[in-house]
Design a protein around this nucleic acid. Structure first.
Lengths: 329, 329
DNA sequence: CGTCAGTGCGCAATCGTATGCGCAAATTGC
DNA sequence: GCAATTTGCGCATACGATTGCGCACTGACG
């Protein structure tokens, strides 16, 4: 059995409340120096560790923040790894720990929502689709929430300036004289991706590119190859500049090109988005946009902490991105 | 303010204990059907959600398990991503959530240890070095712990059969006639890596390979290139078959070879270890050993749950690995 | 009519800590 | 020497749930 504050009190013939006050350094409560020392010594000797549950229950504060995402953690999703690393960094600064909600199969929306508001955490980071019903439930609740990477309705968010990144890619692509374009988007909906796509479409339209020379293709996350090969199999009006929604998709495309002996960037230009993949991979250096996801997460922690502290926090915090020039454009 | 069980009781003129029993489906406590219905209806109407902290405090069970690792979560560490995905899967089956301990700068060993035993979690997954002082502290404590991927002294572990994987690699390498060997190990100590290295050294020794034809090189995790280039710069007795401790290191080596126009596998054979990196990367197919880290994590959850339930659990659970044949050997 | 089983529910302690308030003893002030 | 203050600490309750035990009432049965 763990040692409690009451054990210390009993041992010294004091009351539990006095022990508690000493251990918390309560200045308003006067205690003799000897008593203080005895309490501290005994606590050390008995290897006392306050019960965090009892403290949280009483204080109304757990020092735990949660992360909910509808995506899977795996090696394919290096984005989440970056976010997680950043959250860990940020949380460490504020002595917070991070609770990952593990949704079980057959859970309902209510189950999930309830698990997120049962008092175990002070605040929540959210990464999901804008139409996830959870978003509405959470924004209507008392919960402190910060959305990560993608803006969500009625919730504060920390994002990257995707639109600017996409603009830089297009400028560069146009400057090099490419004229037939494609954008590879995922099949699921992410606000940031849609923002990139919209920017891409708008700029090309503004520059007078005809609609049939600016195609958007939806790529399934698990099996990208089919779509990519169909794309490359086209003979005559195959796109010459393909902007991919993320680096992984770009790498898949590069591989497909290599297999068909299509020269990059001579015959086709390829660009990615994210820019955190290890450049030590035995791959060519991809032209991409670096999104500072670690910083995004760190910022998000700052905001959530301020939100929990009662401050108002800005609706959207957008971090700048930078173009990484490789040799695929 | 959240609704409590007392609120429901007050609303209905009942006692809080009756409300609690109904909501927990306590069969031994007889209650009229009408009362039961009224309680359930009111709970629904008031959108009641029991406070998890109070429940945990009383029940002595939090349904939270922790993960402690001394490594960073980031895109370079896809191993952790796999583990995390597996833990999430396993936890979901048992309605557990996962608490990531975020160590803050300047924390002492005691701080960390105390944070792990303050009652917030029922058990812990551990991934660290065998000489981490935390290991001894934890194995001496009452905490339920399962080590992940690497065996740790006096703690149950779930691992992969690295030795067998390494044996398969060596058999294949020898069969193809390579005669000068090197093993690339990381600079930090991981039990599983040392096991791979020992197997590698032992088998080569058994097969009569002279010691100077079986070299072990320690590679710094952050800057592998220097070591790799020194290795490749050697002219005459450069190794012809290099076994890397993981896939990332192997990919780095492949890249270094490509830059120096060294043909793989004609001039040098390269093998990896882990086998979960996306084969959609624009890289050649690496010969490697697939370690089922997701399954390892899922197994670990099963064991931890049984340990928490009071069952004795086996000291080491070793999962089989499989050789993935690429074209680099 | 007394008893006994069964029904329906509440009292109160407990988990371990935090904290407002009060009270006795010691000290000070005049 | 008496009041006023200060020192040093404990009582009791709260946080929100779980749970052993007991009590009142009802109906049945002999």
């Amino acid at each position: 059995m763990p040692v409690t504050a009451r054990d210390i009190a009993r041992e010294l013939g004091l009351s539990q409340s006095t022990v508690s006050r000493i251990l918390n350094g309560d200045e308003r409560h006067r205690v003799s120096v000897q008593t203080r020392e005895r309490i501290l010594a005994t606590a050390r000797r008995l290897d006392y560790q306050p019960n965090a549950l009892a403290q949280s229950l009483r204080r109304g504060r757990t020092n735990i923040v949660g992360l909910y995402t509808n995506h899977r953690y795996d090696a394919r999703n290096d984005f989440l790894a970056e976010i997680l690393g950043g959250l860990q960094l940020g949380c460490a600064c504020h002595h917070l720990d991070l609770l990952l909600h593990c949704g079980y199969a057959g859970r309902t929306l209510d189950d999930t929502f309830n698990a997120l508001r049962d008092g175990r955490m002070d605040g929540l980071f959210l990464h999901t689709a804008p139409d996830d019903p959870l978003v509405a439930r959470l924004s209507a609740s008392e919960m402190h929430v910060v959305a990560l990477a993608d803006a969500l309705p009625n919730l504060p968010a920390v994002t990257c300036d995707d639109a600017d990144g996409m603009r830089q890619i297009i400028d560069e692509t146009q400057a090099r004289g490419y004229r037939r374009f494609a954008f590879l988007a995922p099949q699921f909906v992410l606000a940031s991706v849609e923002r990139r796509r919209e920017t891409w479409e708008r700029i090309l339209r503004e520059q007078g590119v005809p609609p049939d020379a600016a195609r958007v293709l939806r790529v399934p996350i698990e099996d990208a190859n089919t779509v990519l090969e169909e794309l490359l199999a086209e003979r005559d009006d195959r796109p010459t500049a393909v902007a991919c929604w993320n680096d992984r998709t770009a790498y898949s495309l590069l591989r497909a090109c290599a297999e068909r002996s299509i020269r990059v960037p001579e015959e086709i230009a390829v660009t990615g988005f994210d820019g955190f993949l290890d450049d030590k991979l035995p791959a060519r250096r991809l032209t991409t946009v670096h999104c500072p996801w670690v910083d995004v997460a760190v910022q998000a922690v700052e905001l959530l902490v301020r939100g929990i502290g009662g401050e108002a926090i800005p609706a959207e915090t957008m971090l700048p991105v930078t173009l990484l020039s490789g040799d695929t454009l």
